[in-house]
């Protein structure tokens, strides 16, 4: 979660939410969250587990790319 929040601090275009799964089960269900941490990027790309910074960035680029297509 801290990594996501760091990205938010570093860019005005990035917003980052922590969502506590057990308190918002409808959202966990909506995004098929079975394990944590689970990061959803722009509703489309899912990143499972705590990943290195470079991996999260490349997934963000993937999410942005699929929006453009």
């Amino acid at each position: 979660m801290v990594l996501a929040h760091k990205l938010a601090m570093a860019s005005d275009l990035v917003t980052a939410d922590m969502v506590e799964s057990t308190e918002f089960p409808h959202l966990a269900g909506k995004y098929s969250v079975y394990g944590v941490p689970h990061t959803v990027v722009n509703e489309t790309v899912h990143v499972e587990g705590a990943v290195p910074e470079a991996t999260l960035m490349s997934q963000i680029m993937t999410a942005l790319g699929s929006q453009r297509a």
């Binding site: 275009l13 990035v14 939410d17 799964s21 941490p37 990027v41 942005l64």
Partner: peptide
């Protein structure tokens, strides 16, 4: 200091559209 990698900071600087991250966690 967030201490992000140089290439991350560069990539963030080139963003053109919004990025929304939702990180699901458990207590």
């Amino acid at each position: 200091e967030p201490g992000l990698r140089e290439d991350t900071v560069r990539a963030l600087g080139q963003l053109k559209s919004p990025v929304h991250l939702q990180v699901f966690v458990t207590p």
